[in-house]
């Protein structure tokens, strides 16, 4: 794949998901952040204050446009009008990174507005490849595809998810947006080994990493991890991140905090935790190289 997100300036950068209440702080500078990510769907209107803010942020920082509604993992054809809106947004802002999800959010004419995990079969792999090809040719560039959060036990087909993502990247040239919180949440809920999952991901494909906090909910005595992006990262996720960076090298790393979003300084604290883990991983790697 191309060096998406692997250029030296961006690769070591930490970023945050940009929220309206933080526009001014993002523009004020002095925060040391290397990039900001926005959800594509929040900027699909023609104009207005959000576009004014985003243009100002884009003038100073790398931007990542993260689509959440294209239903790449769906069995229906892509919504072409929606793809055209994404293409227009990408043309308008020329972001450093563009990503979508290996998830479905539409089926049979219903839009679910959630990121649901697709089956992991040869048929769904072929469909996902077709969809990614279609998106990349509409956008005229490669994109990154993010692994989903899983809440159901059991398997969803005969292809392990890391292998599915590796193969999707190999066939389409897309990259992977590795969400390590999603890996951890899914591993706990579906009962697999998060470290083994990360070890099976081809690091050459990974162009960005997402980190976030999650909740532990309880349904009638069953404990389940919910990827709600509503708190600080748990230590296990930070440790998994360090493990992956030690093997892959630095990648642009984004802190997501979408619900009960705290003050900007608290997000900066989270990016510092990630930066420390990144430096530890790189230090360990260089020590290992010398040895």
């Amino acid at each position: 794949m191309s060096a998406l997100g692997q250029n030296s300036a961006l690769a070591r950068a930490a970023g945050v998901g940009l929220k309206p209440q933080h526009y001014a702080a993002a523009l004020a500078g002095g925060h040391g952040l290397g990039f900001f990510e926005v959800h594509a769907e929040n900027f699909m209107s023609a104009g207005g204050p959000p576009h004014r803010w985003l243009s100002a942020v884009r003038a100073e920082h790398y931007l990542s446009v993260h689509g959440v509604c294209l239903s790449v993992g769906g069995r229906d054809d892509l919504d072409e009008a929606h793809l055209a809106r994404l293409a227009e947004l990408v043309r308008r802002y020329e972001p450093a990174l563009v990503s979508e999800h290996l998830a479905w959010s539409a089926d049979g004419g219903v839009f679910f507005n959630d990121l649901l995990p697709p089956p992991l079969t040869q048929a769904s792999l072929a469909r996902a490849c077709r969809h990614v090809d279609q998106i990349q040719s509409a956008l005229g560039r490669t994109i990154l595809i993010e692994n989903p959060s899983i809440y159901l036990p059991g398997t969803r087909g005969d292809i392990p998810e890391p292998e599915f993502l590796n193969e999707l990247a190999r066939r389409t040239g897309c990259g992977v947006l590795l969400d390590i919180n999603n890996v951890f949440v899914s591993a706990e809920n579906a009962g697999f080994d998060a470290s083994a999952y990360l070890d099976a991901i081809d690091p050459a494909n990974v162009g960005e990493i997402h980190l976030a906090g999650h909740a532990i909910d309880n349904f009638e005595g069953v404990s389940i991890r919910v990827d709600n992006h509503g708190s600080a990262m748990c230590d296990e996720v930070v440790a998994l991140y360090e493990r992956f960076i030690a093997r892959a090298g630095p990648r642009p790393t984004l802190i997501e905090w979408d619900h009960d979003t705290p003050a900007f300084d608290v997000l900066l604290d989270e990016t510092r935790r990630a930066k420390v883990a990144m430096m530890r991983a790189l230090f360990e790697e260089s020590v290992a190289d010398v040895a």
Partner: peptide, 16 residues
Amino acid sequence: GEEGDSLRVAAGVAVY
């Protein structure tokens, strides 16, 4: 048709 403990499945569906 979903594999696994039915309470876990119900919990997962509840999250979605």
